[in-house]
Amino acid sequence: MKIMNCPLNGPRNISEFIFGGEVINEPDPTACSDEDWANYVFIENNTAGVVQEWWFHVATAFWFIAERDTRTDEIICTYSPKRVHDKQEERGV
């Protein structure tokens, strides 16, 4: 049973969490092409490598980010989504 290190609760059994998909910047829905929008909604990147992912700790209703190597299933690090949001703000998203 894999261990996930929750930024709020510390190391916990992975059964306490739900996977929320890759962290992807939503293209501007008012400006992008139909094709770009469809790719965003339906197509997965399926990267073999370190991926930034959303994870949800069910008991605390807490969303956070985990960086995981999809080749080895090793979880590299976890952090609060505020970090991602701040980075997005910097980029003017």
């Binding site: 739900i18 929320g20 959303w54 949800f56 209703a61 969303w63 989504p81 991602v84 949001h85 997005q88």
Partner: peptide, 13 residues
């Protein structure tokens, strides 16, 4: 619904 709302607001802030 609750999960999705929290997920969206984690991004919209």
């Amino acid at each position: 619904v609750y999960q999705e709302m929290l997920w969206y607001n984690a991004q919209w802030q």
